[in-house]
């Protein structure tokens, strides 16, 4: 079974959940080159939590975000929140954040010693895009009764924005590793 979660871990988990909620307040940027799809900063949350807190704490932090949404806080971008979110077709992307933070974090722990921008970016792409879409797309397809291909095409518009966010996470992760490392034991 997992080793004990210390009080210190709880604080980090809670504050990264709060940070993810705060990211929704950054106004979404519509990038014209990307077809004007609005990019919300919020989906950086799971990648950041994984890259900075590691797999386990990162995943628990996103589980807390899901819990906060479930108890009714309007913390998702656009002021969405409450149990209604889980009844909607995009719930898979939200639940996918837990796996995203876990995978991003595990990869960062694995490659911690030699972490650089490129490796961190790659880990964020695998976790924050790969895992999220792997859960989100089938969920949309099932819920809206459309084919997987159609759901994937519909979701693809968000991938360029997510790549930008993964790059930002790479820069942040490398800087934080230098100045404020929290992933230490695995090396």
């Amino acid at each position: 079974m997992p080793e004990r979660i210390s009080t210190r871990d709880i604080v980090y988990i809670a504050l990264f959940a709060a940070l993810t909620a705060a990211l929704a307040l950054f106004p979404p940027i519509a990038v014209p080159i990307l077809g004007g799809v609005p990019i919300s900063a919020q989906s950086m949350g799971p990648m950041l939590a994984g890259a900075i807190l590691g797999g386990k704490r990162g995943a628990l932090s996103m589980l807390l975000v899901v819990g906060l949404v479930a108890v009714g806080l309007p913390i998702l971008s656009g002021g969405r929140g409450g149990l209604g979110v889980f009844a909607g077709p995009t719930a898979g992307f939200l639940v996918g954040w837990i796996g995203a933070a876990f995978v991003t974090g595990m990869l960062h722990e694995f490659g911690w010693r030699k972490l650089n921008f490129l490796s961190s970016f790659t880990y964020a792409v695998i976790g924050g895009i790969g895992v999220v879409y792997a859960l989100g797309i089938p969920w949309v397809a099932f819920w809206a009764e459309i084919s997987l291909t159609k759901a994937a095409i519909g979701s693809a518009a968000f991938i360029p924005g997510d790549l930008l966010k993964a790059a930002l996470v790479g820069i942040v992760a490398v800087t934080v590793k230098r100045s404020y490392p929290l992933i230490q034991k695995t090396a």
Partner: peptide, 9 residues
């Protein structure tokens, strides 16, 4: 964890 997150949002 819930209380801390609520307090710090």
């Amino acid at each position: 964890a819930f209380s801390l997150a609520l307090r710090f949002i």
